[in-house]
């Protein structure tokens, strides 16, 4: 069993805002979180098939397949994967919808970075427990 301190958290970061994903990936790397970017729902599913992830971060509103759709498929593929929803929309209705579909938690953009880290760690812990 890997300890949290030793093993990096493998994060699948799904958002169509490329600039956002890039800066966040770099910041995560500095915090021992190995973020794999995916810029669309389709790419996310592809990455998921290719690799193993501890936590996923998923934007609710994306071009093409939207967040809820991706969430449903990911949850089918890996039911124990904790998924944190991100929303720029700030719309509680979609966030609640996501929670109902098995999302671990949700955050509204722009968020407090420390809150995000805390949620990722929490999700990681709960994902490990589930496994």
């Amino acid at each position: 069993m890997n300890s949290i301190a030793n093993e990096p958290i493998r994060l699948l970061l799904i958002d169509d805002e490329e600039d956002f994903v890039r800066v966040l990936t770099k910041r995560m790397a500095r915090r021992h979180i190995e973020a794999t970017p995916a810029f669309s729902g389709t790419e996310a599913l592809q990455r998921m098939r290719q690799g193993d992830f501890d936590v996923a971060m998923l934007d609710l509103k994306m071009e093409g397949m939207d967040g809820i759709e991706v969430l449903k498929i990911l949850k089918k593929m890996v039911p124990e994967l904790p998924i944190i929803m991100l929303t720029g929309h700030g719309c509680q209705v979609s966030a609640k919808d996501a929670m109902a579909n098995g999302a671990f938690d949700y955050l509204s953009k722009p968020y407090d970075f420390e809150d995000l880290l805390e949620k990722i760690r929490e999700a990681h812990r709960s994902g490990k427990d589930a496994r």
Binding site: E17, D19, F20, V23, L24, R27, G88, H89, G90, S108, K109, P110, Y111, F113
Partner: peptide, 10 residues
């Protein structure tokens, strides 16, 4: 929200 999030992240 999206650009602001990016600015804050940057």
């Amino acid at each position: 929200n999206n650009p602001v999030a990016i600015m804050v992240e940057e």
